[in-house]
Design a protein around this nucleic acid. Sequence first.
DNA 1: ATAACTCCTAGTAATATACTAGGATATTAT
DNA 2: ATAATATCCTAGTATATTACTAGGAGTTAT
Lengths: 133, 133
Amino acid sequence: MMFTTKTEYGMRAMTSLARNKGKTPLSLAQIAKENHISVSYLEQLMAKLKANDLVKSSKGMAGGYRIYRPARNISVFEVVEALEGPLSLFYCMSEDARKMICSRGKCLTKRVWQELQKNIIGTLRKFKLSDLI
Amino acid sequence: MMFTTKTEYGMRAMTSLARNKGKTPLSLAQIAKENHISVSYLEQLMAKLKANDLVKSSKGMAGGYRIYRPARNISVFEVVEALEGPLSLFYCMSEDARKMICSRGKCLTKRVWQELQKNIIGTLRKFKLSDLI
DNA sequence: ATAACTCCTAGTAATATACTAGGATATTAT
DNA sequence: ATAATATCCTAGTATATTACTAGGAGTTAT
């Protein structure tokens, strides 16, 4: 598996919120029940989504979560990256790998991973949340 | 990270073998030293590569590993799949997920993962080992 | 006040990855 | 034959990541 349940659950939550647009906000309990996810685990995923401005929340009674932007302006890539962190297929392609030996010379293999990563991001960007509801 | 060091190390080993074509076989010790990998861990990776007919081995003195086919006939996808196992981005896309609830109805999100998976495999198939040496 | 919420932190359980260790087995040079 | 040099095979263990659980503090409508 390349993606974790974080993405699986987070995407479900986002589609629930997208469908709920305009109505009163959805509480964690509601989203969790609707998608068969544990409440406190979902909570942590929602925190990531919120930190990336994909959802907004209101506290207190009758509070809950709303989608931040229209679903057609949110790409699957944004959701995935918010939940899984920045995509890098290998360590050698991550931010803190600048000093690696292999990155000094010309590494042919790296080109494969770079093209692959470009393709993956491109595909994920192409799909919007509105395509999924 | 989406891929593990298995792929990273395994690819290095394969390129070493591709470059060594025609000469006397490379021993585990040689491959390991050349690529800064532990011998006994590499051993396990070579077993996977062998099981998938990507390399052949000869035992005894002056034995070692040879590449099985010409490098231009081996795609990066084959190497990756041999080492990481069959690619499935999510559990819902794996072989043993047929009975899942979501796979009965029409799951729009699944289409995204399916197209993504198609792209990934396509890209990995496009690159041959001969492109990397 | 209190009920219904989000927010925040610190755990723990389960699983997967990345190794290590040691012996069995095969092949070849001497 | 036998010793040297290899692969082969299995069973461990260390580390890291994932997938949760638990408990309390803060916020807001009624």
